[in-house]
Write a protein that binds this DNA or RNA. Structure first.
Length: 805
RNA sequence: GCCGAAGUGGUGGAAUGGUAGACACGCAGGUCUCAAAAACCUGUGAUCGCAAGGUCAUGUGGGUUCGACUCCCACCUUCGGCACCA
């Protein structure tokens, strides 16, 4: 037989698959199975990460297809976004043209993976027939009060000249360009994801299969806490400061109040004497970078306002301070300081010589003075707390104090959330225009649905100037108000690209549909996604937003789904050979195209599946592809002897491998599935291979190495069923339990749990403990160890015999 | 600090509570060759022993069990996420 030369077979089959429409899906057929992999950003280069994501998804999809499912495995492009603009500015190419040519290039690269997705349902988010529906969704959000505009202190990236969502700030730096993020008041559009916070919290035991790490991280991000808002009256004033706390039981220990610099009363309550220092402090706080604000070990700073307020629990007055460790957007932006039972408050009080009162003691009588941090107790018994003294904390003290506060009328229970509303407007060009019109008479007016899409104009000056590039196109900007018909202007911001990716999996079903956001009937049949492959980096962004959209669609009665994906698989990361993340600056990028040229797509695919667990993270070491390559070469050279009949042992190994490979692919344990195939091949290579063994082997390997198996399958002379010419159309082998029984069993003989002997015997003998014991005792070595006498015998039928002495 | 995942040979990694190290890389020896590469065969956790065989080994220390990489408790380390959230 000829030498195994991947180049000679891979492009050939890729072409044939495409021409024959082998992987087209007829969504009208029953037994659907929706395999989704995160669509790619068209950077112009398909990297190893794409191979890993789509490779895993493809293995899974191929098995499901062979198992008889009507697999839907679409692909498309997440085509809006900053890199297009940056590249355009750098190279003077229009973002649209840059994106278009990148998509064309990447489609070619995608083909070389041999993956079985289809572009027949392609979604390209930068096309008007897609983003029109972003705009439609935006307007629906607006109508429901879930999209609103407000001036907010936002994360601002100076380099990219745009606002970032909280999820887009990584360690105080911009996730895209890595430069420091500052706080800046900007007019922004928001989606009220907070309104869905409770529904987005994962239950303990959800009825979909998502990794625990994702569920926990999302819950933590939503960060629901249940406490109480307490009214503190200002001294000599009717003004009230509201402070949120989850420790109301420590109310008698309050010795000061701290306001966030953004708090509306911050400047107002400063007395003339302190005004100057307060203003200076506020100015300084404003200039702080997000990185500095988040610096964990930073020392707390603050400034006294000169004003006081009254503790409603005991009518004592205490000073009001301003400090930037208080977050303006969380709770009420005001915090009661309880240095006696809060370590952070204690440090602040100590620094500024504020009073410290013990309200939680080790025992009900513990009223020891608090001298150092070690003396601060967060749990114990209430002391110095009036009628509540002596109660155990947190419960029942917390609940009793809460009830009392409510009765007295100065406390109101409240739940607070860590999650912020999602800021979705961007002051950049390459995104979905926000479909709103600003009219001097009517205010903000949505563009009527019949006028959608608001198309993104081609001619704009998109170099960053700190304001939206769309404002530079006067003709586009000017519009008649849909309400009064007077002169008005369009909104010049564009949407965050995470809006695009929050619902693309609905649009895949029927991407050309012009009358609806997605095909509702089809969605009711094909959704939810059965398995969704993607990266862990989307835990708090994309996958959370998608869940939000799904629940919003539910409320619009577009879907009955609670969750859009039944199962989520987070794959790991392929690192560079040096063990670092692949990056151009580190020069450790492995280009999959080069690897394919050297070893072929099948070897790259098998190596990717084999070299580490799919959820793992590890370096790509090129030389190690030789293992999978040699494996494929041995498959290539494997010869069947048509006259040969499989032996009993052969059948056993075949069915064992079928079971192992099937179970492993199902559980995305691709590495052990490949190992099982290698093991079986090691056995097959030493004997006469029957036709059934040969064909079964090829079928099991087909999801991993689709080209070589297709080639070898084409040599099999079959009673030609022309419709089923491809190995990928064959029926997936099923393991038959009856062959998994061996005629001989190997029984492990232990003495006190330590292996001393193994014995091989027939099935009938293994049935009876006494016979097995007799056999074991016949062994001299075992006998020797039992010299001290046998106390107990444990026998696990057909597997293990343990003597306890 | 909180949450999540994990710690096993020279390396990547396998092991429903039941023969620890499957499978592969690498390495060593051999076959083939003028030679080399490739391919193939054999060996390959450590240690004692000529051998048969023994002993020690899954981050550390305890525990449960006839038997623990696996379960429980405490701790250490690494990775990922969150973090001045009141």
């Amino acid at each position: 037989m000829k030498k195994y030369i991947p180049k000679n077979i891979e492009p050939k089959w890729q072409k044939k698959w495409e021409e024959s429409g082998l992987y087209k899906t007829d969504l009208a057929k029953p037994n659907k199975f929706y395999v989704l992999a995160e669509f790619a950003y068209p950077s112009g280069d398909l990297h190893m990460g794409h191979w890993f994501t789509f490779g895993g998804a493809d293995i899974y999809a191929r098995m499901k297809r062979m198992q008889g499912y009507n697999v839907f495995f679409p692909n498309g492009f997440d085509a809006f976004g900053l890199p297009a603009e940056n590249a355009a500015i750098k190279r003077n190419i229009h973002p649209q043209d840059w994106t278009k040519s990148n998509i064309a290039a990447m489609k070619k690269q995608f083909k070389t993976t041999g993956a079985s997705f289809t572009f027949d349902h392609e979604v390209i988010t930068s096309l008007p027939n897609y983003y029109k529906w972003n705009q439609w969704i935006f307007i629906k959000m607006f109508e429901k009060g879930l999209a609103y505009k407000g001036k907010y202190i936002s994360n601002w990236c100076e380099t990219d000249q745009t606002v970032l969502a909280n999820e887009g700030v990584v360690d105080g730096l911009c996730w895209r360009c890595g430069n420091p993020v500052v706080q800046k008041a900007v007019d922004q559009w928001f989606f009220k994801i907070k309104a869905y916070a409770d529904r987005l919290i994962w239950p303990e035991d959800p009825n979909v299969n998502w990794p625990k790490s994702v569920r926990e991280a999302q819950n933590q991000w939503i960060g629901k806490s249940e406490g109480i808002i307490i009214d503190f009256k200002l001294e000599n004033s009717e003004e009230v400061i509201k402070a949120y706390t989850v420790y109301p039981e420590t109310i008698f220990g309050v010795t000061y109040m701290v306001l966030a610099p953004e708090h509306p009363l911050a400047t107002k309550i400063a007395t003339p004497e302190y005004k100057q220092s307060v203003l200076e402090y506020l100015e300084k706080a404003k200039k702080k970078l997000e990185v500095e604000r988040k610096e964990a070990e930073r020392e707390k700073t603050g400034v006294f306002t000169g004003s006081y307020c009254i503790n409603p629990a005991n009518n004592k007055k205490f000073p009001i301070w301003i400090a930037d460790y208080v977050i303006g957007t969380y709770g009420t932006g005001a915090v009661m300081g309880v240095p006696g039972s809060d370590k952070r408050d204690f440090e602040f009080a100590k620094k500024y010589e504020l009073a410290v009162i013990r309200v939680i003691g080790k025992t009900a009588k513990d009223k020891d003075e608090i001298k150092s941090l070690q003396d601060v107790l967060e749990e114990g018994y209430l002391v110095n707390s009036g009628r509540f003294s002596g109660l155990k904390t947190p419960q029942p003290a917390k609940e009793q104090v809460k009830g009392w506060m409510e009765n007295q009328g100065f406390g109101e229970r409240s739940a607070q959330y860590h999650i912020h509303d999602w800021s979705i407007s961007r002051q950049r060009y390459w995104g979905t225009p926000i479909p709103m019109v600003h009219c001097s008479k009517c205010g903000i007016v949505p563009v009527p649905e019949k006028n959608l899409p608001v198309e993104l104009p081609y001619d704009v000056d998109y170099t960053p100037k700190g304001k939206s590039p769309l404002a530079s196109n006067e003709a586009w900007l000017s519009v008649k108000c849909p309400k009064c018909g007077g002169d008005a202007k369009r909104d010049v911001d564009t949407m965050d690209t995470f809006v695009d990716s929050s619902w693309y999996f609905f649009r895949y079903l029927n991407p050309d549909l012009e009358t609806k956001v997605f095909d509702i009937d089809l969605a009711s049949k094909i959704m939810p996604v059965d398995i969704y492959f993607g990266g862990a980096e989307h835990t708090l962004g994309h996958t959370l937003y998608s869940r939000f959209f799904t629940k919003f669609f539910y409320d619009l009665r577009l879907t009955k789904l609670d969750e859009y994906a039944l199962r989520r698989v987070n794959h790991g990361i392929v690192l560079g050979p040096d063990g670092n993340k692949m990056s151009k600056s580190k020069g450790n990028v492995v280009n999959p195209d080069d690897e394919v040229n050297k070893y072929g797509a099948d070897a790259v695919r098998v190596y990717l599946a084999f070299f580490m667990p799919y959820e793992g993270t590890g370096p790509w070491i090129s030389e190690r592809i030789w293992g999978p390559y040699r494996f494929l070469e041995r498959v290539w050279l494997l010869t069947q002897v048509k006259a040969a009949k499989p032996t009993q042992e052969g059948l056993y190994l075949m069915h064992k491998t079928i079971k192992k490979v099937t179970d492993d692919i199902e559980a995305t344990r691709f590495n052990t599935a490949v190992a099982a195939l290698m093991e079986w091949l090691n056995y097959l290579g030493k004997k006469k291979v029957s036709e059934i063994e040969y064909e079964t082997f090829l079928k099991l390997l087909a999801p991993f190495a689709p080209h070589i198996t297709e080639e070898l399958w084409s040599y099999q002379v079959k009673a030609a069923d022309d419709d089923k010419w491809s190995i990928h159309q064959q029926k997936w082998p099923e393991a038959d339990e009856k062959y998994l029984q061996k005629e001989h069993v190997v029984i492990v003989v232990q003495v006190n749990g330590k292996l001393r002997h193994t014995l091989t015997t027939g099935n009938e003998v293994a049935e009876e403990e006494t016979k097995v014991v007799k056999l074991a005792l016949g062994n001299e070595k075992v006998k020797k160890y039992l010299a001290t006498g046998v106390k107990k015998i444990i026998y696990i039928k057909g597997r293990l015999l343990n003597f306890v002495t």
